[in-house]
């Protein structure tokens, strides 16, 4: 069992030695993640975990990767993608150029889902999809566009439930248990590290997706990130959050108008 005090020491080490600032992550979830790693990596005590982290930079890399959550799937919450497909994308159609930011894109499933939606709406040629994460390893995976074949059944079911009518397998080729998505989809993607804790706005976007990322932050960090999104959105730009995430408890709420039953808002002031 990790005590609050131990967690403080560990977060302080991560920041002082390596510059990773997890101090404003949601504490309950962070504590669980640290405990989980402590038992997965079979540390007999917290002190030994701390020693390893302070002395072994390779382990640190693994630790940070595992501390952040990278559970994702394509077309996750099909009802959300149905609204993107049927309502949001139509609002972007008239624009000469469409810029989209996937903040906290993890291994890229959401970015590829979006590229498929845009391609089917015949808009991909004039779109750019910026995909960022603090974790370089997951970004590298996303950039390559390889996914496990075993996930394609679920992804394909989600795709159909989101209103997709093509043969989902036409978007990839399978090799030995892995699939590679068509390069025409990834041509318009730009992958880059970006840390929502410390980095600032880098462009103006028509749509920002940040789904199930803010849940890992405390209220003060959520507030910072929501301001960052506000500053990074064009007038009437869209912000999409996870199914149980909300602007209700944030100071930016009056600057947005909820767009649909799904968690999508538009910047209005």
């Amino acid at each position: 069992m990790i005590e609050e005090h131990d967690l403080d020491l560990l977060l302080n080490d991560l920041f002082e030695l390596y510059g990773y600032d997890f101090t404003n992550y949601a504490r309950a979830s962070l504590k669980r993640r640290v405990q989980r790693l402590c038992s997965l990596d079979k540390f007999p005590s917290f002190a030994e975990l701390r020693y390893r982290l302070r002395s072994d930079e390779t382990y640190l890399k693994h630790f940070v990767e595992e501390l952040t959550v990278n559970v994702t799937e394509m077309f996750r919450d099909p009802g959300f993608y149905r609204v993107l497909r049927q309502e949001v994308i139509d609002n972007l159609r008239a624009k000469p150029f469409i810029r989209i930011w996937h903040a906290g894109c993890s291994t890229g499933e959401e970015v590829y889902s979006m590229a498929i939606l845009l391609k089917e709406a015949n808009l991909l040629h004039k779109s750019l999809l910026y995909a960022t994460d603090l974790n370089p390893t997951v970004l590298e995976k996303a950039r390559k566009g390889f996914f496990s074949l075993s996930e394609m059944k679920l992804n394909s079911e989600n795709y159909i439930a989101s209103g997709g009518v093509q043969d989902f397998s036409s978007y990839y080729t399978a090799h030995y248990g892995q699939v590679k998505f068509d390069e025409s989809l990834s041509e318009k993607m730009i992958f880059s590290t970006h840390n929502l804790v410390s980095d600032s706005s880098f462009n103006e976007f028509d749509l920002i997706l940040c789904r199930n990322v803010l849940i890992y932050f405390d209220k003060s960090l959520q507030e910072r990130v929501l301001r960052l999104f506000y500053d990074s959105l064009a007038q009437l730009g869209f912000l999409a959050l996870g199914t149980r995430e909300t602007l209700r408890f944030s100071g930016v709420e009056p600057k947005f108008k909820q767009f649909s039953q799904e968690k999508i808002w538009r910047k209005v002031t």
Binding site: A26, R32, V71, N212, I215, G242, E245
Partner: peptide, 13 residues
């Protein structure tokens, strides 16, 4: 999950 500040935190891990 529940925070000591008595707010809920969700976790999709």
């Amino acid at each position: 999950l529940i925070e000591h500040s008595l707010v809920f935190s969700l976790d999709a891990s």
